[in-house]
Structures are given as structure tokens and as C-alpha cells.
Design a binder for these strands. Structure first.
Length: 1052
RNA sequence: GGGCCCAUAGCUCAGCUCGGUUAGAGCGCACCCCUGAUAAGGGUGAGGCCGAUGGUUCAAGUCCAUCUGGGCCCA
């Protein structure tokens, strides 16, 4: 290494994990994140909202995915000059937390909480539970380079956050949209609470289960020999059978009961065969409306006989896809409840809140257990027609996996269905990524919006701030100050959770009776949906900050949040402000394993993010997430896929960087010493600069558009161009003397590319890019202390050169053809050849001008010449260009194609070359076609080896003269010496003493005649031509075309 | 039962918005090359009736319909 080196030597065998950890230290020590914010203070804000995770478990790979995307766009916008405030947040409340604590305490039934532990202790443990893993989250967040303010995170359990939620609820109350109502809700009997519809939308909620499928006889009251054949899969609901429903437009049949001679059954005609088999004696057929209003005898007597009960009603939900076309109605279904209400009937429930039957002889039995008893009971009374097994998908509690019951309860609702239009209007203003979700999954959800079931009969949550007096008056409290006023005591220091808040009594403002808080807490999704307000304790504090940072420019979560956070955010802010709280949302797919299966502990296919960070590094993981395929489709992740992402991009980038630093150190190059304008640099430099410029344009546009993949793909291609074409072609330019202007251009160009590339890649792979940027920029005094403090690169017309890019594309495809020709002829590149003959359409011939030397060098030929006398070597095919001719000729296209096919191709090509256009006869009319209308292709004539593609071709002159063969031998010798240098452990800049002998005169002549060249290439300062190597040298030999050559060398 | 997404090389995925007659990458595989980035790098090649069937069109991987298989969501 030169003493003049100003760059830190680069280890080609880099350990990315170690490098990343060192950078985390540096960023922390030098406050890089804080400074990245400080330097943008006062600039236009770009607002990000963090969807708060529940930190009561360790973060997994899917969390890394979401956090990578969040970080990515924020970093990009920050480099673009925006002030991007990033406040972390934690979702603290809710059933998941309670379940976790229940497990810890060994609680299996809800009542144990109050009876055995007490609410105070239980809630205290919930609070501890959500704090337990925050340290793990913080560590991983830092490790993957997610820059977010963890110090000043919002916690949904903080009194300030709770107060903001109260304020929101009060404003909804004031609009008359917060009400108590009787509704059928999915209810978890184990957790003892109703579940919201978006809790039902959680992954894993629906599971296939086996239930009994039973057909029961409901004898008609006035015709006891005839029974309605009623179908249900929940026998326990028969205990409170209230009504039956039929489809008005469905045809029904009266058939002989195959089990009871002399009796009859009624069921839908379409289902008779399915239910009864083939031997059916049909007595009568009639439309469903004939059944409406008829009375029947219910299977049980628990529901009191009343006017309007136990009759058949019309139900538009009745279908003939399953069952019998006759549906039993009990208050355990949404449709059911509507019918029962319509009859003004009392609701009779035979099941209690823990899912146990309340009527003898079934009292105390868990309903699913009671099913069997009920079936037996019906059988003994001759009412049971048939019992089958029914496999269907049924909702379960997403946390405790208990099968849910649909249960009528009094609960508190937010009347979101009344503002459905507003919700849809809010959504209208949101930009969704991918766009299909906007009117698809999410739009449908809004269009079918149902009221938000808000209250939860639980302990750990934001308490519903509604106080009820003995008269039944309700008072909604919107702040702690208001509660202090109403209660006559200062509650400002109070923990606003159960059980403390339950002890605060107020005087009812309407009747002065004592009022007590209703015992509910609220759906935790309402908390997270309130974070735009709650994170600032709005409107009690920070109103200025809120105004500046509402709505968000960007949020991102996985697709399962469509009905979770994406909905709760939109709904809460629409309720409060009338608009959406986010403008852009990037929706991510799930992480699945290599085989497309979900990652789960039971399958043992979970990838631990820490293991990946320690083995491959966070950059590799981030790069894969951001650049590998559509983010919203399920993403297959495996260790080998991550390793591939590492090798393909990061290592190539690193090698290129390492190459530059190695030679810049050797040559003592200073990128700031001299600035040669782009226009004055060689074509190769102008080409890569043009590619760089295009990359800036494409990446910037893609990232502005929330499209990480397109940006990543462009960077990937640029790195490939840079490493595998620019550096490969320019290598020698880096090892001449430092004064040479061409060398200066090369160093400068590659330096610029690497610096800009490090900036463009910085949001993707923040670690390695900072390492590269810093080492390259260190000599530049005014450079910022991190790539993340630098400004995003701007495209420039100085660098832009689309024509040069096109020319290089052409050259590279000619080189590819030349290589194919060599492979075909089995002549290795090391053997020089005299000529390459190229075929290019005349219109494009000019494009190659000036780049022939490049092609020649790459193909190791002495010259590149246009092929003449082509006619003898190739045949032409001329095809129509359908893209231009199709629209012009429409249905006549077929005739045009025929005319072209039947014309003589050589003549057409001649005409084109001479006149620039051709004339063909189409259906009697003359049509003029230009070069663009025709697609000319060539084929090699038989017996001549030619690599060709479309209208391009390359042929090689395979005549190897003695001279060429000698040069090939010399080259072979050089390669062998270089090999020996390396295997002897010499450094690239070491000079050597070289011995060389041979046992063949021709080989000797080949070596002698190229001796200067050989010695120069291998840095031989002392040479012994024709002498046997001494004993202490490294030796090797090569078998050339001529004969054996022996070489020996040692450090000079 | 309804809605949405997906189906392209052995594997992982582009391309489909806006139809054009020769469908692209990477991995893997075969063969080969390069050697002053070297426990790296590169090239060439084989490998596809673009899930199936109909339809629209001069022309369909691309648009439409139906179906099959997989996934997600809802009832």
C-alpha cells in the first residue's frame, strides 16, 4: 500500500454483520439520526405515522418487513429535503395482552380474574406485560436500521393518550353516533366478550370445523301429520326456536315421510333428492309464499307461545344450496334478530354469557356439549329426521381459538354505517399501493360497513367514558377536567384505567342521581385508530404540532390491516375531522416460507430475524424485502434467497468499491484534485455517466411513487453495468501512472458513480452505503458525516445521453454475438483473430462508429469491419412490422403480410437501402412501406458459421496465421505467470525476477518475439530468458499449442 | 354462498396498465472463458403449446367469459 493512501483499506472478505454493528455504534455516538432531523428543521414536512405494534411478544420477520418499508420511504424523503418526523408508538391495551397474562396466571375462566386475582393486580400485570418485550423491539428496530424516535414513543395506555381518546368519543357522542344497542354479535364465551368485525378478520379466525347437520320435524299446528323439515347446524339454538323462515320464491314439495308411514314432510323441491334420496313420493308442489304465516309446533317449550311466534315468515336469506330450504330462527343470528324484532317479540335466550345452557334438563352444559343431548331428546320424541356431519368454515376467537357464538347483547356501538358515504369519500382521497385494494378489498368493506361494536366487557383497555345514573341517563365525559367537575374531585393525577376509574362517581347532570361508569373498556383498535390525535395529546396539548402533522403522507402495514388499522384510522379520523388521516398507504403481503406456506411455530419454518442479521446482515434482508418482487403479494423467504440477494447486489457493489479503493490507494488518487468535465471524458466514461443519470431519474420517480421494486431493479442493473462492463472494460486505465489524464477520468468517473450509487441505495441498504460513502468522501472536507445526511442526487443534462446508451447497447449485443461465434467455432478468446465481420442495418451503422475498438478488444480481434459481399454469406427474411402496419391496414393486414411474404427479400432489401422505401401491391393497390414498417432478419447460409440475432450478425475470420498463433502463445504465457504470481502470494504491485525456458523452438520464438510485452504485463524488472529457474523460485509450466514452456519467478 | 388476488423455464419472479407475430431475468444445470476485483468475475447454451376451454380481433401471455388449481378475505 502506498503511504500516500487517504482511504481506509477495504477488506474484500467483508463481514457485513460486523460492519453494520460498528455503524450502529457510530450513528449512536455521532447522533446521526437526530442530526438528520435537525438539519431539515423548518423544511416542508413529510408526515409518517407509525402503526403501533403490541409489544407483548418478540418481533418476527414480518415485523421486519413492515419496519423496513416504513424506514425506507422516510429515509428517501428525508434525503429529498423533507422534515420527516418519526415517532414510535406502542399499542398497549386489549384482549391479546389479557390472554397472555391469563396464561401466565393459569386463568382458564374469566370469572377467576375478579375472584382470584382482583382487577387491580390483573391490570398491573397487563401493564408489565406490554413493557416486557419493548427492549427486544428497540434492539431489533435499531439493528435493522429503522430510524424512529423510540425515546419519545407514544403509549396508548398513557393518561394523555386515554384522554385524547375520551375527547374523540365525546365528539362522536355529541354527533349522536355513539349508542347502546341490542345486537347479535360474535361472542367469545371464554373471553366473555364480543368481538369486533375486524377482530373476526384476523388471520386464523376462520377454521374448518365439524358440526352436526340436523333435519328436524316442525309439525304444522293445524295439520299435525304434516311437518316442516327444518335444517340447522347448531342444535343448541333450537332451545330458543322462535320462528321459521321460507323463501317466498322458492318452490316447496309436500312428500311422503319415508320414515313415518302416513306422515308428510315439507321442504324445498330442489333439495328433496339430496335430503331424502331417490325414492320420493311427491304429493304436492307449491310456492313458498303459501307457507308464510302458518303456525307450527316448536321443538321445545322454552320460548313462550305468543302472538306472532312460531310461525313461518319470509326470509330473503333462505337458499337452496344447503339444508332443506326451511330455516329455524332463534336470537343467535343477525338475520334471525331482524325477523324476531319485526314481530315485536321478546327475546328469549336459553344460553348464558359463558356459553352454557340455562334450561333444564340441559342447564349448565356447554352448548356444544348440549348438542348431543338435544339430538337424543329430539330423536326420542320422533322429531329428528336425520343427523349428518357438516364440515364448514366457522369463526373462532382469534386469540384463544374458542369457537364463537352469535349472541344477542346490549353493547355500545359507533354508528359508522350512518357515515358510510363520508367513509367512502375519505377513501376516495387515499392513494393505495397496490391500487386494487382501494375499490376492492377496502372499498367493498366500506360499502358494506356495519356499526362498530365498541364496548368490551373486559379489564385492560381504555375505559368507555360513559356514566349511567340510576334513572338510566347516560353522560359521556370528554376530559379529565370535565370528570373532575362532575365528580367534585380532582382526578388529574388518576390512572384512568380500571379499577380506579370505576370508583369515580358523578352526579347525573340531568337528574342529579348518582351515576356510575358503565363497566366496559373499548375495542383496542379504536386506540390505534386514534393515534394521529393521541400521540400529541390533542387537543389538550400540541395543537400546532397536530395541525402540521395531520394527515399523514405515508403509512404502511401488512394487508391484514385492511380491516384493522387501515380501517380504524380512517374511521376515527372521518368521525372526528370528516377526512382520512392518511394520503398514501403501502400495503404489504405476508411472509411465507420457501414452499409458500405460512411461517408458524408449529411448522417449524420460522426464520428468526436475529439469525439473519447475524449471518447475512440487515442490509441483505432489507434489500430482499425492498427489491424482490411485488411487496403486496405473499413473499417467499428462505436463507438461500437471502444469501442470493446478498451475493448478487451487495457483494458486487462491494467488489467494485473495493476495486476503486485498492487502486486509488496505490495511485494516491484524490478525486477533488482535478475536475475534468464529463464532455471531455472518454466515451466509456460518458456512457456510464449517462446510465447513472438515467438511474437517478428512474429511481427518484419510482420512490416518489412508493414503488421500491422498480427502483431496486434499476439499481441492480446499474451495479451490473458498472461492475461487469464499465470496470471490466476500463480496468487497465486504473493502473497507469497517476498523472495520465485518462486515468484521472477513470478514477473520477468511477468515484462519482460509487458516491452517487451509495446515495441512491442508502434508503435500501443504509449500512453498507454509509461505509462506502464515508470512505470515498472522507478526503472531501465539506462532505456530511453520513450518507444519510447528504442530499438526494439530482439528474443532470450534462450526463444525460440517451443516444450513447443506445449505442452501447448495440455494441454489447454485437460483443455477445461475437462471443457466441467464438463458442460456436471453439476458438478461445485468448487466441487473437484477425477480423470480426459485423452486419448491421444501414440505418444503424453510424451508431457503432467510434466504438469498434471496444468490440475488437473485447473479442480479441485485430479489426472490426462491416461485412461486405453479404449476399454470399447470408439470406434475408423480411417480415411486416405489425405494430406499425396493423393500425394502418386493419383487416387488410393479412393481405399486406402476404404481399410482403411473396416478394423477393433481396429485392426488398435493395430497394430499402437505395430508395429508403419499398412499394408492394396489396389487393391491386400500391402501398409504400418504409424501413420502420419492415422487420429485416438475416440467416447464415449453410456451411458458414455466423452468430446472428434479428438484423444483426457477427462472423469471425478463423484464419489463424503463425503470427496470431505466436501471440496466442505469448498471451497464454502471460496468464500462467500471473497465475503463478498469485499462487506465490505476491501483491499486485510487486515487481518480479522472471525465468523462462522452453523445449520447443517455435514456442521459444513466440515468447522471444513478444518478450517486451510479456515482461511489461507481469511487472518483471529482471528477466532470464532461456535460463532454467533457480532453486528458490516458484515454478510452473504451460503446455501451449507449440510445446512446453517453463517459468519461474520470485519477488525482485 | 359471495368478493379479491395469484397461476409464465426444474425453482423464484418480471412482462399484462396501453394486444403486434422471436416472452425476459436470477438461481440451478451443461459447456466454456477470463485472470492487476481472485476463497471473486464473465460468457454461451439447453430449458416455455405463458393453468384449461371458449370468445373478441387482421393479431391474444396481454382484453372478455367460463372452468380448474392455490392463496387471502367475508358470510
Amino acid at each position: 500500500m502506498s503511504e500516500r493512501s487517504i482511504y481506509t483499506p477495504v477488506d474484500a472478505k467483508v463481514s457485513f454483520p460486523a460492519l453494520e454493528e460498528a455503524l450502529i455504534e457510530r450513528w449512536r455516538d455521532e447522533r446521526i439520526f437526530e442530526r438528520s432531523l435537525e438539519q431539515r428543521e423548518g423544511d416542508a414536512e413529510w408526515v409518517f405515522y407509525e402503526g403501533p405494534p403490541t409489544a407483548n411478544g418478540r418481533p418476527g420477520l414480518h415485523h421486519v418487513e413492515a419496519r423496513t418499508f416504513k424506514d425506507f420511504f422516510c429515509r428517501f424523503q428525508a434525503m429529498r429535503g423533507r422534515y420527516v418526523f418519526r415517532k414510535a408508538g406502542w399499542d398497549c391495551h386489549g384482549l391479546p395482552v389479557e390472554i397472555e397474562v391469563e396464561k401466565e396466571l393459569g386463568i382458564t375462566e374469566k370469572r377467576q380474574i375478579e375472584e382470584e386475582w382482583g382487577i387491580e393486580e390483573f391490570v398491573k400485570r397487563c401493564r408489565e406485560s406490554v413493557q416486557r418485550y419493548v427492549g427486544d423491539w428497540d434492539k431489533l428496530t435499531e439493528r435493522i436500521g429503522f430510524w424512529i424516535d423510540l425515546e419519545d414513543a407514544y403509549w396508548t395506555m398513557s393518561p394523555e393518550f386515554v384522554e385524547s381518546v375520551w375527547w374523540i368519543l365525546k365528539s362522536i357522542w355529541d354527533k349522536g353516533l355513539l349508542e347502546e344497542d341490542f345486537k347479535v354479535v360474535p361472542y367469545c364465551p371464554r373471553c366473555g366478550t364480543a368481538l369486533s368485525s375486524h377482530e373476526l378478520a384476523q388471520p386464523g379466525a376462520y377454521k374448518d370445523v365439524h358440526d352436526p347437520s340436523i333435519y328436524v320435524r316442525f309439525p304444522l299446528a293445524d295439520e299435525p301429520d304434516v311437518a316442516l323439515l327444518v335444517w340447522t347446524t347448531t342444535p343448541w339454538t333450537l332451545l330458543s326456536n322462535t320462528l321459521a323462515a321460507a323463501g317466498e320464491d322458492i318452490e316447496y314439495s309436500k312428500v311422503a315421510d319415508p320414515q313415518l308411514p302416513g306422515k308428510f314432510l315439507i321442504l324445498a323441491s330442489a333439495l328433496t333428492e339430496k335430503v331424502l334420496g331417490e325414492d320420493i313420493e311427491v304429493i304436492d308442489r307449491f310456492p313458498g309464499k303459501d307457507l308464510i304465516g302458518r303456525s307450527y309446533t316448536p321443538p321445545f317449550g322454552y320460548v313462550p307461545a305468543a302472538e306472532g311466534a312460531h310461525i313461518v315468515l319470509a326470509g330473503d336469506f333462505v337458499t337452496t344450496t344447503d339444508g332443506s330450504g326451511l330455516v329455524h330462527i332463534a336470537p343467535y343470528g343477525v338475520d334471525d334478530m331482524t325477523l324476531i324484532r319485526g314481530q315485536n317479540l321478546e327475546i328469549t335466550s336459553t344460553v348464558d354469557a359463558s356459553g352454557k345452557a340455562t334450561v333444564d334438563p340441559f342447564a349448565g352444559m356447554w352448548v356444544k356439549d348440549a348438542d348431543r343431548k338435544i339430538v337424543e331428546d329430539l330423536q326420542s320424541r320422533g322429531l329428528m329426521f336425520k343427523v349428518e356431519d357438516y364440515l364448514h368454515s366457522y369463526p373462532h376467537c382469534w386469540r384463544c381459538h374458542t369457537a364463537l357464538l352469535y349472541y344477542p347483547r346490549k353493547d355500545w356501538y359507533v354508528r359508522t354505517s350512518q357515515i358510510r358515504d363520508q367513509l367512502q369519500a375519505s377513501n376516495e382521497a387515499v392513494n393505495w399501493q397496490p391500487p386494487t385494494i382501494k375499490y376492492g378489498r377496502f372499498g367493498d368493506w366500506l360499502a358494506n360497513n356495519v356499526d362498530w361494536s365498541l364496548s368490551r366487557d373486559r379489564y385492560w383497555g381504555t375505559p368507555l367514558p360513559i356514566w349511567r345514573c340510576e334513572q338510566g341517563h347516560h353522560t359521556c365525559v370528554g376530559s379529565f377536567a370535565e370528570l373532575s367537575d362532575l365528580s367534585g374531585q380532582d382526578v388529574s393525577g388518576l390512572d384512568p384505567h380500571r379499577p380506579y376509574v370505576d370508583e369515580i362517581k358523578i352526579d347525573c347532570p340531568r337528574c342529579t342521581a348518582t351515576a356510575q361508569r358503565v363497566p366496559f373498556v373499548i375495542d383496542t383498535w379504536f386506540d390505534s385508530g386514534s393515534m394521529p390525535f393521541g400521540q400529541w395529546h390533542y387537543p389538550f396539548e400540541n395543537t400546532g404540532l397536530f395541525d402540521k402533522r395531520f394527515p399523514a403522507d405515508f403509512i404502511s402495514e401488512a394487508i391484514d390491516q385492511t380491516r384493522g388499522w387501515f380501517y380504524s384510522l380512517l374511521a376515527v379520523s372521518t368521525l372526528v375531522t370528516g377526512r382520512s388521516s392518511y394520503n398514501n398507504v403501502v400495503c404489504l403481503g405476508h411472509i411465507v416460507d420457501e414452499d409458500g406456506r405460512k411461517m408458524s411455530k408449529s411448522l417449524g419454518n420460522v426464520i428468526d430475524p436475529w439469525a439473519v442479521c447475524n449471518e447475512q446482515g440487515a442490509d441483505a434482508l432489507r434489500w430482499l424485502m425492498l427489491s424482490g418482487g411485488s411487496p403486496w403479494s405473499a413473499r417467499r423467504v428462505s436463507v438461500s434467497i437471502i444469501e442470493e440477494s446478498l451475493r448478487k447486489y451487495l457483494l458486487t457493489l462491494w467488489n467494485t468499491y473495493s476495486f476503486w479503493v485498492t487502486y486509488a490507494s496505490l495511485e494516491g488518487f484524490d478525486p477533488t484534485a482535478q475536475d475534468i468535465p464529463i464532455a471531455e471524458r472518454p466515451e466509456m466514461d460518458r456512457w456510464i455517466a449517462a446510465e447513472l443519470d438515467d438511474t437517478i431519474r428512474v429511481v427518484t420517480e419510482a420512490l416518489e411513487d412508493f414503488d421500491a421494486t422498480t427502483g431496486g431493479k434499476r439499481l441492480d442493473r446499474f451495479v451490473d453495468d458498472l461492475s461487469n462492463w464499465y470496470v471490466r472494460r476500463s480496468r487497465r486505465r486504473f493502473w497507469r501512472s497517476g498523472e495520465d489524464r485518462d486515468t484521472q477520468c477513470a478514477f473520477q468517473t468511477l468515484w462519482e458513480c460509487l458516491v452517487t450509487l451509495s446515495q441512491l441505495s442508502a434508503p435500501f441498504t443504509p449500512f453498507v452505503t454509509d461505509e462506502i460513502y464515508m470512505n470515498l468522501m472522507r478526503p472531501v472536507s465539506e462532505a456530511p458525516d453520513s450518507v444519510h445526511l447528504s442530499d438526494w442526487p439530482v439528474a443532470s443534462d450534462d450526463r444525460r445521453d440517451d443516444e450513447l446508451r443506445q449505442r452501447m447497447r448495440l455494441v454489447r449485443s454485437l460483443v455477445g454475438l461475437g462471443r457466441a461465434a467464438r463458442t460456436d467455432a471453439k476458438v478461445k478468446v485468448r487466441q487473437p483473430l484477425q477480423r470480426a465481420l459485423v452486419v448491421i442495418p444501414p440505418a444503424e451503422a453510424g451508431l457503432v462508429a467510434g466504438l469498434e475498438a471496444l468490440v475488437a478488444d473485447e473479442l480479441n480481434v485485430k479489426s472490426v469491419e462491416p461485412m461486405t459481399g453479404i449476399g454470399e454469406l447470408v439470406t434475408y427474411t423480411v417480415k411486416p412490422n405489425f405494430k406499425t402496419l396493423g393500425p394502418r391496414f386493419g383487416s387488410r393486414m393479412r393481405s399486406v403480410a402476404q404481399a410482403i411474404a411473396s416478394a423477393d427479400p433481396e429485392a426488398l432489401v435493395d430497394q430499402l437501402d437505395n430508395a429508403g422505401s419499398v412499394t408492394v401491391e396489396v389487393d391491386g393497390a400500391s402501398e409504400t412501406l418504409t424501413a420502420g414498417d419492415l422487420d429485416v432478419r438475416i440467416e447464415g447460409r449453410a456451411g458458414f458459421s455466423l452468430a446472428r440475432e434479428g438484423a444483426y450478425g457477427v462472423a469471425l475470420d478463423l484464419d489463424i496465421t503463425d503470427e496470431l498463433r505466436a501471440e496466442g502463445t505469448a498471451r497464454e504465457t502471460i496468464r500462467a505467470i500471473q497465475d503463478l504470481r498469485r499462487s506465490s502470494g505476491l501483491a499486485v504491485e510487486d515487481r518480479i525476477e522472471l525465468w523462462i525456458t522452453w523445449d520447443d523452438a517455435e514456442a521459444g520464438e513466440a515468447v522471444r518475439s513478444h518478450w517486451q510485452w510479456i515482461a511489461g504485463e507481469v511487472l518483471a524488472s529482471t528477466t532470464h530468458v532461456g535460463e532454467d529457474p533457480l532453486g528458490d523460485t516458484s515454478t510452473d509450466h504451460i503446455d501451449t499449442d507449440h510445446g512446453r514452456v517453463v517459468i519461474g519467478l520470485r519477488r525482485a
